[in-house]
Design a protein around this nucleic acid. Sequence first.
DNA 1: CTGTTAGCGCTTTCAG
DNA 2: CTGAAAGCGCTAACAG
Lengths: 367, 367
Amino acid sequence: MGPRITPTAAREVTIKEVAARAGVSVATVSRVVNNKGPVARETWQRVIDACQALRYMPHGAARSLSIRRTNTVEVLLPDLYGEFFSEVIRGIDLAARRRGYLLLVSGSHSDWGEMAAVLQAVRGRVDGLLVMSPDLEARSLRAHLPAGVPVVLLNCADDSGGYSITIDNHGGAQVMVRHLFSTGRKNIAFIAGPERNVDAAERLRGFREAMEAAPGTSVRELPGDFSEAAGYSAIREILESSDRPDAVFAANDSMAIGALCALQEAGLRVPADVAVVGFDDIPIARFVSPPLTTVSVSISELGRRAFELLLEAVENPSAPGRIEAVPTRLVVRESCGSAPGPDRNQVTRLRAAEQPAIAPEKEEESS
Amino acid sequence: MGPRITPTAAREVTIKEVAARAGVSVATVSRVVNNKGPVARETWQRVIDACQALRYMPHGAARSLSIRRTNTVEVLLPDLYGEFFSEVIRGIDLAARRRGYLLLVSGSHSDWGEMAAVLQAVRGRVDGLLVMSPDLEARSLRAHLPAGVPVVLLNCADDSGGYSITIDNHGGAQVMVRHLFSTGRKNIAFIAGPERNVDAAERLRGFREAMEAAPGTSVRELPGDFSEAAGYSAIREILESSDRPDAVFAANDSMAIGALCALQEAGLRVPADVAVVGFDDIPIARFVSPPLTTVSVSISELGRRAFELLLEAVENPSAPGRIEAVPTRLVVRESCGSAPGPDRNQVTRLRAAEQPAIAPEKEEESS
DNA sequence: CTGTTAGCGCTTTCAG
DNA sequence: CTGAAAGCGCTAACAG
């Protein structure tokens, strides 16, 4: 019966109750909670006390409705499966947290209908959209996005000049091929990614161009879908044929790891018999054996930059839009034999990849 | 100047405008949009048309405020890094999507303050909380959670009888040890997880108990933190000492993979010289070489069940709460040598792990 | 069947 | 410096 509040008060406390307890109006409570507007020191203290006593927390939806701002962004990914997406989200989360934003995430499962459903559901819930849709068919994607909501596209085949961010897939693939050349490999098999995927297409293009530029080389292309299983089966197929490549370039690390697995299962030595290289530099790449030579993408950085770009778009809705590319970096580890050349740790764009706020990398690549 | 709507209408269209265009009241529009309440066929059609013409989408915050329901749940994880969390989120997302829920995700970075900040921010934004906080110190966690909001705890050292879900870590570890015995290993090194982590503690406990129960065995425990790097350094330490174990049991797969890497780097053969086994069965476990024997946890299933549990709590706020354990399953692959015994694919609890809605597993473990 | 109206919890002029 | 009141966009009685 004392003034003590029951600790498990099921009902949520509103600004009105705080006002009542502090003996002020709701306007004043609002002022101190958001500390804006002038409030007398003494009143201010009374309000603070009331808030604490009541364990008051502002109601998000109500606040959003009123100020027309949610401090939330939607992250729409094709899938939530695996280290790549995990890293992207982590990068976004890091940046968002710093700016006080919340993240609504969902995997669209590359399904057009599900994607539309999510897009439907988020109006009035988010200030902007981060959409990753590497499907080539998605050229018209922007047309289907809700109008008037800032959007940043990640890894999209973008057309219209909105905000958008991509990976330098083409350059990265070329650098990798040249590196393989420099270690003396000439007969290179490429395990491709999904046919309709932009990143995959660009990597393939980079591979082809670099190969064509070199005389006396031999090319082979296998289909794949970015999964470990695909890398695994690609190798099985290669092993059945007569001519064995001296290097395998997988369009992403997951497939490279699947390839590694199949190769070793078949009793082949990597890199002695055949080199294996990947693309992405997912966290686990340095911990497979042999450690994987790959094109490092700084995936979390991709996420971080995408978020910053979105914020720019949110705060500046009339801006023309901007397209950024995050650079890639060749990372030489053991899976491709040692490189005598000078081209390791080569950056493919002007700017060096900034390190993410948190560097998960405990081991340094051999320099 | 025609009746055509400008396609890039920046301003958002409200229910009022739809009502005006359809020549009805907002109430009627609301009725058809949520299709509840009686509406004449003809009116209904007019409203539908108006909605489409205007590309109307209901405003989430306004709706939530009114119906006191957000159809959103918060997922608070210690971190967003790596395949484990990625899988948990995927499992939750799958279930949430099916029920029409949105997911607010954030990584707390095990930081108490950040966690509180997020918890603050979500009132009025979510219907419930999914909190994973494996830190042992978090016993009192529940006390700090916002009152009156349904919560399901994942992998927590739970005390008070709320809703909560855990992994059968203890049982899984015991089964694994017995399996190692059955392949003739006696001298087993255990790479532990973070000291204050519940899962890690339970796995360690299971390991110890199983070891103590067996005569003539030799135990060794190394510290670790669930990262690949930790597994790697644990092995380096082992290699410096004189007696070499014939098996290494890492408290999770990431460390097992790090261990694999260090072992092979040192020229040791797995499993010929030393067996390596892990815990979790993250997707990549079957694609390292040799493929990793591990305790499979069906991580996405953990997420799925957690979500279902939360829904139960949301729809039934006065329920007493319930604690579930998801079973584990021994998965024998090559990293521990072949097992002659009958105990492969052993389920540690009564119920077999139901398969997740989407089975990412392309390859079957040897039976 | 359909319209009016009173909120949902908070912010923000505008007066005092 | 503080309070009253008008919304924010939508839903839900309650009348008609």
